[in-house]
Amino acid sequence: MLSFTHRRRLVQWLSYLYVLVLLVLALFPIAWMVSSSIKPIEDLFVIPPQWIPQNPTLATLNSVIYGDYGRGSLFPRYFANSVIVTVGTTIFCLVVATLAAYSFSRYPFRASNGLMVGILSTQMFPQGMLLITLYLTFLALNLLNTYPALILANTTFAIPFAIWILKGFFDTVPREIEDAALIDGCGRLGVLTRVVLPMIAPGLVAAGVYTFLIAWDEYLFAATLTIKPEMRTLPPGIIQSFVGQFYLNWPNVMAASVLVTIPVTLLFIFFQKHLVQGLTAGAVKG
């Protein structure tokens, strides 16, 4: 029979062991991607694999960005498209979701609860089904291959979740502060923009970062609503450029993957705390 302190120490060692194993499983694939992206092609296709690149090179990254064999690369264009669509989606959703979340949190009326449930339940509507009509509508409006079409399509899943996150934050603001501001003659909209919004700044960051992540990630809508190569965002762009039916350009695929991952990784490093807080603010209060 182990004593209490011994058992406690054993549990702790097992915990560290578990975390260590899981860290390897979680991070090794990412390290492998980076390693694969800086190998010359002849070092990529070898068994046993070269864990650490013996002849590291930036040639593949270069060819992804600038093109090779005299052909230009569309990668910078995809990147710009992704930035425009993602930033557009983020700003639009943030404004619209902030107003809606504030309404749900502070001025509930009879239909509010039903509307909130309705908005959240849109998450279970099959995206492929929505896409049919979105495609036909944008086709009729001559909006295929445009940024507004992609931004609007992204709102289908971005707005509901942003509202959920932001409502969680609004709910934490004490009502008395707003009452005081109202009595001081501040209009209702002024209370929101000048008093409440500064207080939930972390929530705005969380919802913004979250929207950015899912918009940057979006593939299905972007692949269907854009046909012109120069209007594609990164996810369909990479597939289009490097993944053929019978041939996959692995070195370029890995290099492009690294480049696509860098922006969201930086974002995550800077805003990790906000993102974690945001994901859990709506969930944990129950």
Binding site: L27, I30, D217, Y219, P235, V260, T261, F268
Partner: peptide, 8 residues
Amino acid sequence: MPWIVPTV
């Protein structure tokens, strides 16, 4: 990190 990496 795996959750941050884009799905594609």
